[in-house]
Write a protein that binds this DNA or RNA. Structure first.
Lengths: 374, 374
DNA sequence: CTGAAAGCGCTTACAG
DNA sequence: CTGAAAGCGCTTACAG
């Protein structure tokens, strides 16, 4: 009964006709033929109007536009593509193991990419790579390019030198990557955007030095990723520059998650014992790590910044609201992804053929998680 | 020089040939003709292998498969679609005004939808709707359906009775919605998934009653959305059932964000004055609101749960780690989106023609943000 | 079991 | 300025 009623409504109000083809009912969409007929022109002319050809007189143009509107016609994308148009779709490949998925940053990056594309009238097909070493997963990624589902792809969270990305570049596909090094062989179809992580980390250390800290530890992020490597190098370089020792026990490792920061710090505190010499300040490879580390410190009865100073990286949306408000190095993800998307699309639309590699500066944001030593 | 080198590398390693067409260089992909030639069969047979037709002898099948592998061939999706195949792409339409975008929930929902699709070998095209009342935005949404970019769409965060969604359903497109009421006219191409918000809210109130609370306030979410409406109704119904009064001043309004919770509570505290009769417990329409409210309470010197009890909704990933750990009503987004996706795809693949409406139960999770009154 | 051929709905040189 | 026609790369009845 319900179903019958449903079907009934369907037949009456639907903007499609049912056509008997063999033994199947096939839904026919409005196509350019019908628009042409209604407007009294040929399909060629309809196409010219849709594609904004200059040699269509205003009069004709208006007739066609009217017919398009009247029939609620939208050109079939597959047919357009088959005839040589682009898909106007960008693949977004986000490497994200389980825990990271809950990170606010992931969301922000996804949304930034989607909106940047949307502003340029492009669509985004998102694919989550849970395990970049899984053969099947990588094959799915490659497939999206080869099938021509997408005009290009943006990769986030890959290792600094992921081989399958290199492959795609070699095949001539247009690829934008965040947080990867630009390999020696530079080609215009590989666009690279990074932050100046070293410089950012150096700012953090400079600030701590200014506050009188000399015993500084670091909680690293994923050192398979370029930013993980660079931040650590910035730290080493700044410490070395100042003639300060880097204590091996004060170099903590993990990935870029809150949980990793928590565990690394908890582990360190247990291992080091209460009367060991401990850093007076920690720099974390990102804010999530800093949150986790602060949680572990608090659980051990150590207050930030009273007992120990902590500085983050990213300026996560929650950093300002954190207790204590987190001193951190701000990084402009939105701008970066906007520019990266714009460069990728320029390459797709053949507006440029330059090798593109950009690096964005970061800026220290002072809040209340560090204290001056006296 | 660099560019020259780039081009050189390109020509040598690339799996494409350059073909002179008029004055343009056109890249030619491997197509089924070349596979057919290499395998010594016709394109028909290649297609039959790709589409797993049963009437291809193993021998032939293997020859073709070998050629496909050798040429690294992937069928062109546009051609397949034009010949009648589906796009295997689902549109994800996420209504999200600026502030909400930073919410962890948004991320979780997006990722849940994408992964559910991925498990079924489908792709997701995500579109962010910043303003559902904007004509241009809605036209973009409709366009995606009419252009046949997607086989169906899932809507999250729409108003409970959004008209353009109804329109799409009426046009026969397959639509899955979360948090919308199923209108009187039920059709199999509209699939609805909700939580039992009323029952969830009643559990929250029941728990507070058990702790001895009788003066209970509510901080509502967006009441343009079904969940906002239902949670409030659950609250009213539970209070009425118990013969407890609902004080107008104890009904706070906003949207589903942390900021709204913060502002609503801050505003209430200012307005009510310290010696006014205040609720001993608040229920919030979601956890983000609860976080914001707790922040405002703390700033006013009121501790949770010592001075006032607060209960949330959703069981946000941060709720457990919150200080204090938040008592809340847990809701299983992952399961819901997985099932919703599965139902939408079943409809696309014509595996079912039933009217689909499902509602998932919620469960109270007791932590430490509520205290027993004595 | 398998090939030749029509057809999907566009775009775009080509010819006028 | 505009129409007829070829072509994009598939799938699938049809005929054998």
């Amino acid at each position: 009964m319900l179903t019958t009623k449903g079907s009934d409504v369907y037949d009456k109000n639907v903007n499609t006709r049912l056509l008997k083809v063999g033994f199947n009912l096939k839904k026919m969409e409005i196509n350019s033929n019908e628009v042409a007929r209604l407007a009294g022109v040929s399909r060629s002319t309809v196409s010219r109007v849709i594609n904004n050809y200059s040699n269509v007189p205003l009069k004709t143009r208006e007739k066609v536009l009217k017919a398009i509107k009247e029939l609620n016609y939208f050109p079939n994308v597959s047919a357009q593509m088959l005839a040589g148009k682009k898909s106007r779709t960008i693949g977004l490949f986000m490497v994200s193991s389980g825990e990271i998925a809950v990170d606010v940053l992931t969301n922000m990056m996804i949304v930034s990419v989607i909106e940047s594309a949307s502003d340029l009238n492009y669509y985004v097909l998102t694919y989550i790579i849970r395990d970049a070493s899984d053969e099947g997963t990588i094959n799915n990624v490659r497939e999206m390019f080869y099938q021509r589902r997408i005009d290009g792809g943006i990769f986030i969270g890959t290792k600094h030198d992921e081989a399958f990305v290199d492959d795609l570049v070699k095949q001539g596909f247009i690829v934008g990557v965040f947080d990867q090094e630009h390999p020696a062989e530079r080609v215009p179809n590989r666009i690279v955007a990074n932050f100046n992580n070293e410089s950012g980390m150096k700012q953090a250390i400079a600030y701590l030095l200014g506050l009188g800290h000399r015993d500084i530890g670091i909680i690293n992020g994923d050192r398979q990723r370029l930013s993980g490597i660079e931040k650590y190098e910035g730290f080493l370089s700044a410490m070395r520059q100042q003639g300060l020792p880097v204590h091996e026990q004060w170099v903590l490792n993990g990935d870029f998650s809150e949980q990793a920061g928590y565990e690394a710090m908890q582990h360190y505190l247990r291992r080091s014992g209460a009367d060991a010499a401990r850093p007076t300040a920690w720099v974390a490879a990102n804010d999530s790590i800093a949150f986790g580390a602060i949680r572990a410190l608090r659980e051990a009865g150590l207050l930030v910044p009273e007992h120990v100073s902590v500085i983050g990286f990213d300026d996560h949306v929650l950093s300002e609201k954190h207790n204590p408000p987190l001193t951190t190095v701000r990084v402009d993800f939105k701008q970066l992804f906007k520019d990266l998307m714009q460069m990728v699309i320029a390459q797709i639309e053949e507006q440029s053929d330059a090798v593109k590699e950009v690096a964005y500066d970061c800026t220290l944001i002072i809040r209340q998680s560090c204290r001056r030593l006296d």
